[in-house]
């Protein structure tokens, strides 16, 4: 009877998980295409919320209470706290205007499609080792990872690069959850703390960069040479 209810659960949960995974990919593409900083941060928050819901669903599937704790942590840190901190930084730094891109949006998107094909073809042989409920999600996580990487490469401003970095972290977290059905809590806590501290350090850097160059555009950093 209990076995039966678990089966019935997974019959509902795994399609929802798949749709969430797909939604994750959509959010990564949206991050890639978005020009405005505020919307970028909002998209990042949505990614965090999606991640939390996914973790909670995996927790429901495996009946592991640790995953619920992890879901709550994810929601509070990635869904609420980090976007809030970024928002605060944006306001304090008074960054205005659109994000400058090194490549136009359609070419970035097409490059993104190529990356997704690449990620899927790499992850496909590993599919057999994954739990049945998260079949195929490693490819999506890898694709999301590569897309965030592409986003970091194509942006000039420091804040959007940080958003790309955090999206990369989200993708890694997603990969871990889907590949192992939940990491040990101590590892997750460590990673969460690392990212938070990283964010604080980066925040301090932002102010330094702006004080030195009057801008957050990172290509000014290229002018710093020792031989001058």
């Amino acid at each position: 009877m209990i076995m039966h209810s678990i089966l019935a659960h997974s019959a509902i949960i795994s399609p929802v998980l798949r749709i969430l995974a797909a939604w994750m990919l959509v959010l990564s593409f949206a991050l890639l295409a978005q020009r405005r900083l505020l919307s970028l941060i909002r998209l990042l928050a949505w990614q965090g919320v999606t991640l939390a819901v996914g973790t909670a669903l995996v927790g429901q599937l495996t009946g592991d209470p640790v995953l619920w704790v992890s879901a709550v942590l994810t929601l509070s840190i990635k869904g609420i706290l980090m976007p809030y901190v970024l928002h605060y930084l944006l306001r304090r730094l008074q960054v205005r205007g659109d994000v400058e891109m090194t490549l136009n949006v359609p070419s970035t998107q097409l490059l993104g499609i190529l990356l997704v094909v690449f990620a899927f073809s790499i992850a496909a042989p590993l599919d057999g080792y994954l739990p049945a409920a998260t079949h195929g999600m490693l490819g999506i996580a890898l694709a999301a990872f590569l897309l965030s990487f592409l986003m970091m490469i194509t942006r000039r401003k420091a804040i959007s690069q940080i958003v790309g970095f955090l999206a990369m972290d989200n993708a890694l977290f997603f990969a871990a959850t889907s590949a192992t059905l939940g990491m040990p809590l101590i590892v997750e806590l460590g990673i969460a703390l690392d990212t938070l501290i990283g964010l604080v350090v980066i925040g301090v850097f932002f102010f330094q960069i702006r004080d030195t160059f009057d801008s957050l555009d990172l290509h000014y950093l290229e002018h710093i040479r020792e031989d001058k």
């Binding site: 995974a21 990919l25 899927f120 496909a124 999600m137 490819g139």
Partner: peptide, 13 residues
């Protein structure tokens, strides 16, 4: 893009 992701996720998922 959405169309291609749909096609790809058919193969992946």
């Amino acid at each position: 893009l959405f169309g291609v992701i749909g096609l790809l996720s058919h193969f992946m998922l």
